[in-house]
Design a protein around this nucleic acid. Structure first.
Lengths: 181, 181
DNA sequence: AAAGATTGACAGTTCAATCTTA
DNA sequence: TAAGATTGAACTGTCAATCTTT
């Protein structure tokens, strides 16, 4: 018989116990959250091999992909990564202690700081990146290119529909607050 | 212009900064984990309205969908919900303190206990369930039936390919360990 | 030995309060 | 007043050690 996944059995149980309940949303949301939970530890083994947590990797990666000079404010980081400012402070403390990032004062706003990748941090993230990509690719090994593309398209549609659209950058947003007529 | 999601911009940044890196896996895995992170608090508002955490709801729901007499062992629960046994003990303590579940000794194995939904627990989960389903449906409101079905199918294929297949139940597994020829 | 459950130490998060600067 | 960052308390999870029973 064709194998089914864990959520399929859960759906069957609900069909028996509560046949009137609509299960179409759960068949998506349930699989989404279960897959995320299942894949996270798998993905974090790569980071752990370099003594990084998943959250710490995310910070280094966010700085790296920004391009030179690899700088963002703590607020920009916590917005992009969906962590509270308190959570971000904690991550930055850990990374700064290991000299993977540096906190410089923001010359244009004394309330803020600029978080920058150090040379050490940049070397580390550049070393991890290819391993990480290879690992993700291995995890998705069961899906061919067409399936990946289809999945990415549908997930993007869902992301857009729940409002996960690219926010304007802080300075643009400020400029836009009182739009010109 | 057609709006794109947050991960789309991340992918563009990587294309600029590291054009040789294959981004196809991330376009799936990145969206998966980000959507799970984005949707979780949205979903948990329903539970919070009844003074339950997401993890506590999961335990009550797992017991409920099992059918009468709504009983599972802590090991079965921690396996089904992907939490460690220590984490499950913690959840069960909180639920037992509020008399939503009960722990009875297992008559057939003195090492184990049987976790059962109380009448109060059953009333609570049955009251939450329709709200939860309606909430999930609202969250997926941007996807039509065809898109949901397609997404569910692709996510199941991924789940199966990473090994998230329905495990045989404990007693079946014991029976199967030394298969008959 | 090994399995089931629990415990306590640790990790990482959110939340609300606080301090400084705009 | 409000925004940016930090702090400490509370919460929730993992991990490794432990105790009991098989």
């Amino acid at each position: 018989v064709a194998p089914r996944d864990h959520i399929h059995q859960v759906l069957q149980q609900w069909r028996r116990e509560a046949p009137d309940l609509d299960r179409s949303a759960f068949s998506v949301v349930g699989r989404l959250s279960r897959l995320a939970q299942l894949l996270a530890p798998e993905i974090e083994t790569t980071f752990a091999a370099h003594n990084l947590s998943g959250g710490e990797f995310d910070v280094l990666a966010a700085l790296r992909r920004t391009g030179r000079p690899y700088r963002l404010t703590p607020t920009e980081l916590s917005t992009a990564l969906i962590v509270t400012s308190g959570g971000m402070t904690r991550r930055l403390n850990a990374l700064e202690r290991r000299a993977l990032i540096r906190r410089d004062p923001d010359p244009s706003d004394a309330r803020s700081t600029l978080v920058a990748l150090t040379a050490t941090g940049r070397r580390l993230i550049d070393a991890i990146l290819p391993e990480h990509v290879a690992n993700e690719d291995r995890i998705l090994g069961g899906l061919n290119g067409r399936e990946r593309a289809q999945l990415a398209t549908l997930l993007e549609a869902l992301a857009i529909s729940v409002g996960d659209t690219t926010p304007a950058r802080a300075k643009d947003r400020a400029r836009r607050r009182r739009p010109r007529r």
